[in-house]
Design a protein around this nucleic acid. Structure first.
Lengths: 205, 205
DNA sequence: TAGATTGTTAATCGATTAACAATC
DNA sequence: TAGATTGTTAATCGATTAACAATC
């Protein structure tokens, strides 16, 4: 029986991946160790080794990890060997910023479709993409087999859009709407609400 | 001796607060229970009661919690009884979106200053605020006693801006730069990187 | 070889849950 | 009163850390 890998471990793998890419591309390093990686991320070396050990043996005693090899392994584990088409719903200020964000490139994602319900926005071009009428959402998601979506719509529309995305097969959703959304089993949802993050920090002020 | 309250508990309080405000303002409810709140947030009722019990006794057996009272208590705990002035560094697409975001209002924060280094951006107006030269950063932070900042600058500038903010007294930083930042003890930092969130979810695809 | 670092085990630490007496 | 729900205790569950044999 395959042991279930803790969610919290999965959550750290992208952090490791991001730092490894930095080490390789920006600093030209070939090898690293759990100690060096942990030092840079504020994570204990033991935790990094333990996390990786869930998936295999990627290092060598004495020399540590070959960075490029570990990057490849993490990409396979996280299913980042292909580029995922992403549907972006909401073309307001935030949608606009996301549409222009270069950070998706080379990290496994490409925003391929943008939707909005505002007639003034529909037809507008955002970073090479034409904003589509949100009524076309289901058709586009199905035809392009889209599994990943980003929601940047008002609170009042967020649950409806979520339900519609899920109904046509989307299984990973990143929502910027500041509200808890309900999704069925098997659908992953992640939230980004700057106020929630700031409020956590003001406790310590 | 005051018992140290776990960080993970603090992190859930803003979620409770957000939902309570929704219950009160949007749905007009007066009372709620740990069960109802938990149901809506996908959190066990026992956990909610345990979390709150770190700070006092806010409920009544039989009837649960008076929502407005609990909201007030959470606001005090999280230091949200005043409105925090926030310095936003970076006036690119994302900074622009943040400057126009209405979600800060009534939740304890107000973006009061926007900085950028680009001469084309400096002097521009964003949602009533004039983009300031980032060379004025320290002066403005000190003079206005700013403790909270949001970073929306490129990776290459993020650590430098962080250091400068910290050096003049900022103690809570929300960074959108996709890189781990180093801050001294006593400074809180929080990250928002959509790609990290998406990569965590593609594991399950 | 000597030094470094892995992967893994066992111990420790911390968080969540179940259960229930108290009581509104 | 009967029903509901709290705050809290103890048990359970899960995650982190320390330590080290193995070995590059």
């Amino acid at each position: 029986m395959t042991r279930e890998i803790p969610d919290i471990v999965i959550g750290r793998l992208p952090i490791y991946l991001r730092e490894l890419i930095r080490l390789a591309d920006d600093e030209g390093k070939i090898n690293t160790s759990s100690h060096e990686l942990g030092e840079r991320l504020g994570i204990s070396s033991a935790q990094i080794r333990k996390d990786l050990s869930h998936f295999g043996e990627f290092g060598k005693q004495g020399t540590g990890y070959h960075i490029k090899y570990l990057i490849d392994q993490l990409r396979e584990i996280l299913h980042l060997t292909k580029e995922w088409d992403v549907a972006l719903v909401g073309a307001g200020y935030l949608g606009h910023a996301l549409a222009h964000y270069h950070g998706f490139l080379h990290r496994g994602f490409r925003i391929s479709w943008i939707f909005d319900s505002d007639p003034n926005k529909i037809g507008e071009t955002m970073n090479q993409l034409i904003v589509q009428d949100v009524s076309e959402l289901e058709k586009a998601v199905v035809h392009n087999n889209i599994k990943v979506a980003i929601i940047a719509v008002p609170i009042s529309k967020a649950q409806e859009i979520t339900d519609r995305l899920v109904s046509v097969g989307v299984r990973s959703i990143l929502s910027y709407a500041p509200i808890h959304l309900t999704v069925p089993e098997g659908v992953e949802i992640s939230y980004s609400d700057p106020v929630i993050q700031l409020q956590r920090m003001t406790y310590y002020l």
